[in-house]
Design a protein around this nucleic acid. Structure first.
Length: 162
DNA sequence: GCCAACGTTGGC
DNA sequence: GCCAACGTTGGC
């Protein structure tokens, strides 16, 4: 946690395909922490780089999964830093246009907080007025790093507790 | 596996 | 700067 946090805590949602990286992978990661890297969309990049802050809350959503659901919670635990994968030619996320002086893509560390006892299903979210503004539920939305309003955050946590 | 929606690329 | 083509995402 930053001792100099200067704004109210904000909330975010991160999409991940569990066959690639799941909430259990995060739980079992060293220090229960992972770099959230490989993001190659400018809008998502901007959120990652500029909008997030240490201490912010993060919901983890499993896409391409059964069931589609928010499955747990994490916390932002680092400032943004250049995503190392953009510099590695062996990495699928390599970007030849990026340089150390002028990185294009950014990452942050996130740390496991809990796996929901009751994952909050997409089908349920879709019926909640408090969640109507979630980009997640917008038709055709592909944003993998997105904001979550306070009301939605509170409701989702309440639902996760049953 | 399908395909709609979206973002990016590149020719002009 | 337009826009068609293409690749990717991600629910269904």
């Amino acid at each position: 946690m930053s001792p100099t946090q200067t704004r109210p805590r904000q909330y975010w949602l991160l999409k991940t395909e569990p066959q690639t990286f799941s909430i259990d992978d995060l739980r079992r990661a060293p220090k229960q922490t992972t770099p959230w890297d490989g993001v190659r969309n400018y809008q998502a990049r901007n959120i990652l780089r500029d909008a997030m802050a240490v201490g912010d809350g993060v919901l983890i959503y499993h896409s391409c999964a059964k069931p589609l659901a928010i499955v747990g919670r994490a916390e932002v635990t680092s400032d943004s830093y250049p995503d190392p994968s953009q510099f590695d030619p062996q990495n699928p996320y390599f970007d030849g246009a990026a340089t150390a002086q002028n990185p294009r893509w950014f990452a942050r560390d996130i740390t496991f907080v809990e796996a929901f006892k009751r994952p909050v299903l997409r089908d349920v979210l879709a019926h909640l007025p408090q969640c109507a503004d979630l980009p997640l539920l917008r038709r055709g939305s592909r944003l993998s790093v997105q904001p979550v309003a306070h009301a939605a955050w509170g409701l989702i946590l309440a639902l996760s507790e049953g």
